[in-house]
């Protein structure tokens, strides 16, 4: 029974990933995903990046490097989606940036990190070039 449930769960997971990989999220999933990504951002990111994403969170006063302003389109277009994904999952040093940007792989799934990348694109109202 356990095993059957696991197999079933596995199937759903594979299906889910397949959909997530498909070009552009399907309409029926997009709204829930966006809301979830915003909740993640407001739980894990605003402590440094600020309630409005401007890089001025409660923690910044004594930090030696200021967090990136996620609403700054001019700066954010230069960072590709892959680059953002890597920075969030593996932390600043993985993209030759400060350790003050920590790695989130221990808390967030890949799918959740992809959701956050899309949320950053909403905040900057921009697409990545680079």
């Amino acid at each position: 029974m356990r095993r059957a449930q696991h197999t079933l769960f596995g199937l759903w997971a594979v299906l889910g990933l397949g959909i997530a990989w498909a070009e552009g999220a399907p309409v029926w999933a997009a709204e829930g995903d966006a809301a979830n990504a915003e909740l993640l951002y407001k739980t894990y990111c605003v402590q440094c990046h600020g309630a409005t994403g401007k890089g001025n969170g409660i923690n910044v006063r004594d930090m030696s490097v200021q967090p990136r302003d996620h609403t700054d389109a001019a700066g954010m277009v230069g960072l590709s989606d892959d680059r953002l994904f890597k920075a969030i999952k593996e932390g600043g040093p993985a993209v030759t940036k400060s350790v003050l940007m920590p790695p989130w792989a221990g808390v967030l799934t890949d799918e959740e990190v992809h959701g956050l990348v899309r949320h950053l694109r909403v905040l900057c109202a921009c697409e990545g070039r680079g």
């Binding site: 407001k42 739980t43 605003v46 600020g50 309630a51 409005t52 890089g55 001025n56 409660i58």
Partner: peptide, 22 residues
């Protein structure tokens, strides 16, 4: 200093050069 969940106690700053406060 930010309580059980810091997010419940933030006063957002409107200016980029000022930090959010608890």
């Amino acid at each position: 200093p930010g309580g059980a969940f810091y997010g419940d106690h933030i006063v957002p700053s409107q200016a980029t050069d000022k930090w959010d406060q608890i």
